[in-house]
Design a protein around this nucleic acid. Structure first.
Length: 657
RNA sequence: GCGUCCAUAGCUCAGCUGGAUAGAGCAUCGGCCUUCUAAGCCGAGGGUCAAGGGUUCGAGUCCCUUUGGACGCGCCA
């Protein structure tokens, strides 16, 4: 499907070809490279292009002179009459006034496109692996995770719409010290049934479980302290099959049972014990439920255990990668080179370090220090697993990897890119014909800044030490007003109103307020208003008919709105290219603003539904097109587009507190 | 100390590969509901784009320096 902007670019490109033929220009310009933008001032026309600045280079003429010579060529190329006026402005801008044909076709494009309107092939089917959230399954998601989740999900939707072949993935960190600690914490609660019951009682009242009073004896100082751990133990204790299996472990009374491998353990490692595995599975289940409440689902949940060969039918690719890195001198055993002569060498175990500081790594990906991949005791680090994971991502055939990480992980980015470079070199040395696929350039990392939780402008305290903090679930519950969708819509839209690298204030009070300062309602109200106009027309027997034409639109407002419809595909493609879903949110807000203004301004003497059939049909087409645009845009953001909204007064009467 | 990111209206933030007179919401002030949803609209005030220098036809946007803030520099994940 071609769009208005594409047709206009083609036209400008054709004019450039004429320019080459007549000797005005040196080279033609491809349609895709032509920038079109909507000027801020209406006196500058409907669309402007700075095309003449670039094509004048090398001609010896000024951009303005080229632009003046270009106008007649544009007229000649415009055999279909898209352009109503073209004038040169300033140092060489070309301001275009578009003909009625243009805005009519914008409306027809929208209605014909339907739910698919706005999609494009801008991404050329590039295979993208989008990894996000990937929170450790050691506790509930918090607001920061929620932001990354919403951003990643919306980005996936936007990029798919723009013609990228996107897969989404959640990497489950179910190996290592953190999950071991989780298992150990749960274990202590499992043993202390009486304490557990008391703690859950305290917890259910919303109070933090006091340490050490409410905690079982011997509970580790650095264990997970949240009340959810006691809850997890409770759930496991009541799961019949599990408690039977655990009975075989023997005594619950002392730590030896914990220290010795349980029957299901293959290696005796603490992160592979039944309690540990059951615990993180429980946590992950909760995470999955929370994400589904935000309408977020992943194409794949990728288990780190598989990389270590701990899941069924998996091999230990972490060790394999480490071995190969050592074999090609990308890793070495000993003290880190960067710290040579620093301290006296300890006569302890010798770890394996990755050469992240190697000169062979492009400077922008180079690390300041060589990092450990295998500890002195032989256990691989998180980094080692991540190496194997990203190696596998590229081996699976993705052209591009996008990771969304919390901004506090930014130090990790160049390290990971450096590794991908090393893997490319490694594979080249091994004679892999596809080695060029492995490169730091393939990886893009989006860093999401923190979320500051506020209530009525004041920061909400988060006691990280006590383990009691406001979870994502709490926040969704808190901002849910009418139906289940309202919480999701508010949370998603507010997160998407900021770009990733800006800090975000999330005010619970504003988010739950069903009033003007809550931006999500503004757009949804616009959609509902459009729907209600169409309903009204139908009920008056003046509904939109098939085959109607939008030729009865003559108001400036109407032209502006039609051209805004034409911008949706542009906006989606741009948001996808720059990985910034917030651009869609801003576009929707702006389009809504234009509609509300049109509606109110013309309420008195230019209503949509009139006695003149042609005008009514035309305006209904515009209304239907706008509704489609808002609907498609909101869907990309994962926000619902209601046809009706409960009025403020009704809601207020219902929810009198 | 080294590194990454950020700094735009009173507040929270947009500003598209560098483009024309820097925008929006909130807050403040003044208007608009007999008639398709007032969760709306119209208007007013509000700016040294942190500071200084550079690149060019043109800089909020790119480069350098300074200041201020966030974060990172584990055999944690």
């Amino acid at each position: 499907m071609t769009t208005l902007y594409q047709r206009l670019r083609e036209l400008l490109s054709r004019a450039c070809h004429l320019g080459v033929e007549t000797g005005l220009l040196l080279q033609p310009v491809a349609a895709a490279e032509i920038a079109l933008e909507r000027p801020r001032q209406s006196s500058h026309g409907d669309l402007a292009t700075n095309l003449c600045f670039s094509i004048s280079k090398g001609t010896g003429k000024s951009p303005r002179a080229v632009a003046e010579a270009f106008v007649p060529l544009l007229r000649a190329a415009d055999t279909e009459g898209w352009i109503a006026g073209a004038e040169v402005a300033g140092p060489g801008f070309l301001n275009l006034r578009l003909s009625e044909t243009c805005w009519n076709s914008a409306i027809l494009d929208t209605l014909q496109g339907g739910a698919a309107y706005g999609t494009s092939q801008a991404g050329h089917g590039e295979k993208v692996l989008l990894e996000f959230v990937s929170a450790n399954p050691t506790g509930p998601l918090h607001v920061g995770h929620g932001r990354g989740a919403v951003l990643g999900d919306a980005l996936g939707r936007v990029m798919r719409a723009a013609g990228y072949d996107v897969s989404t993935e959640y990497y489950i960190n179910n190996v290592g010290n953190q999950v071991s600690k989780l298992g150990e914490s749960v274990w202590h609660w499992l043993r202390a049934e009486g304490k557990r019951a008391a703690a859950l009682e305290i917890w259910s009242r919303g109070e933090p479980v006091a340490f050490p009073d409410g905690f079982p004896e011997g509970f580790p100082e650095d264990g997970y302290r949240g009340g959810y751990i006691a809850q997890c133990a409770q759930d496991l204790a009541h799961a019949g099959a599990f408690s039977e299996a655990m009975a075989a472990v023997g005594s619950w009374a002392d730590d030896t049972a914990w220290r010795e491998a349980d029957p299901a353990s293959l290696t005796g490692r603490a992160d592979n014990r039944t309690i540990t595995v059951k615990s993180w599975q429980k946590m992950l289940e909760r995470i999955r439920i929370d994400l589904e409440r935000l309408d977020i689902r992943f194409d794949r949940w990728f288990s780190e255990r598989g990389l270590h060969g701990l899941d069924a039918d998996t091999l230990d690719s972490v060790s394999d990668c480490a071995r190969r890195l050592v074999a090609q001198d990308w890793a070495y055993e000993g003290e880190p080179a960067a710290r040579e002569g620093d301290d006296e060498e300890e006569a302890g175990d010798r770890a394996i370090f990755f050469r992240g500081t190697s000169e062979k790594i492009p400077k922008s990906f180079r690390d300041s220090k060589d990092r450990v991949i295998v500890r002195g005791d032989g256990r691989p680090t998180y980094f080692a697993a991540d190496i194997a994971y990203h190696d596998q991502k590229l081996a699976r055939g993705y052209d591009r990897l996008i990771n969304i990480l919390g901004a506090d992980h930014h130090g990790y980015v160049s390290r990971l890119k450096g590794v991908l470079h090393a893997l490319g070199d490694l594979r080249a040395q091994e004679g892999d014909p596809l080695a060029a696929r492995w490169s730091g350039e393939r990886l893009e990392v989006l860093l999401v800044q923190m979320v500051a939780l506020l209530r009525d402008g004041k920061p909400v305290p988060m006691g990280k030490r006590s383990g009691e903090f406001i979870t994502l679930r709490d926040v969704i519950d808190d901002v849910t007003t009418s139906d289940a969708a309202s919480g999701r819509d508010a949370v998603r839209f507010i997160f998407l109103l900021r770009k990733a690298d800006a800090q975000l204030d999330f005010d619970l009070e504003v988010a739950r307020r069903t009033s003007m300062d809550n931006p999500v309602y503004y757009v949804q109200y616009g959609h509902a208003r459009l729907a209600s106009i169409l309903d009204r027309a139908r009920s008056e027997g003046k509904g939109l008919r098939d085959g109607a034409l939008p030729t009865g639109l003559h108001l400036d407002d109407e032209r502006e709105l039609a051209l805004l419809c034409a911008e949706l595909p542009e906006t989606i493609a741009r948001a996808a290219r720059s990985r910034e879903p917030h651009q869609v949110a801003y576009y929707l807000t702006e389009t809504c603003r234009a509609f509300h203004a049109y509606y109110t301004r013309n309420k008195a003497d230019n209503r949509v539904i009139t006695d003149d059939d042609a005008t009514t049909q035309s305006r209904l087409m515009l209304v239907a097109a706008l509704k489609q645009v808002l609907h498609n845009g909101l869907t990309l953001l994962g926000v619902s587009a209601p046809d009706r909204m409960v009025s403020l007064q009704e809601a207020g009467a219902e929810g009198s507190e």
